[in-house]
Amino acid sequence: MTAFLVLIRRDLALSARQAADALVAVMFAVLVVVLFPFGVGPEADILSRVSAGVVWVAALLAALLSLDRLFQADHDDGSLEQLALGPLPLWALSLAKAAAHWLVTGLPLIVAAPILALMLQMPASGLSTLVLAMALGTPCFSLLGAIGAALVLGARRGGVLVAFLILPLTIPVLIFGAAATEAALTGQEAAPHLMLLGAFLLTSLALAPAAAAAGLRQALG
């Protein structure tokens, strides 16, 4: 457990030294959202209709942006092999890496989401559900992303490839996340969608670190 926390703290310290890199993800989400009023027109009713989906897609793209670096930097300078020799099993290593990735990109996105939603004219009644759904959904992006990041270690064009591999797998999160917000906005029950999102999070929490560990083993072996 200590090794687990130390690894998270190390990754957080590394991101803190390069705070600009971490902020780029959130800034990217903001820019994607800002593009939409130009694309679909600034009419409030159109924007509020698409707001939930746009915020989710922007968050997903921003989370993917930094994924290819999740293991790559450690792989390049050899510290990944050192970590693999350490006391932490590979699945716990992947879990710690995903947790650090979520703290650096997912958490700021959750904070930014209600502001982005307000810019897209989302009624205030949907905001709390949006934040709750994001809190359940963004960890799934980091967990699934860890699988992709482990698989593309050492590949050509790893960044594009990891998006290509992971985006299809994140579609359920997008569907239920947007549906929960949509339900809250139209006065329906959001709980079933949130529960499905929670189930997806628990399943990826149980399975994704194992798959990522298998990927790491192939990359190191």
Binding site: G154, L161, F164, A219
Partner: peptide, 19 residues
């Protein structure tokens, strides 16, 4: 795309198998 992304086809095959 994944199995063709590596210099070493062996590595591509193993990554692809997990995917």
């Amino acid at each position: 795309a994944l199995i063709n992304a590596f210099e070493d086809p062996e590595r591509g095959a193993r990554a692809g198998a997990i995917l």
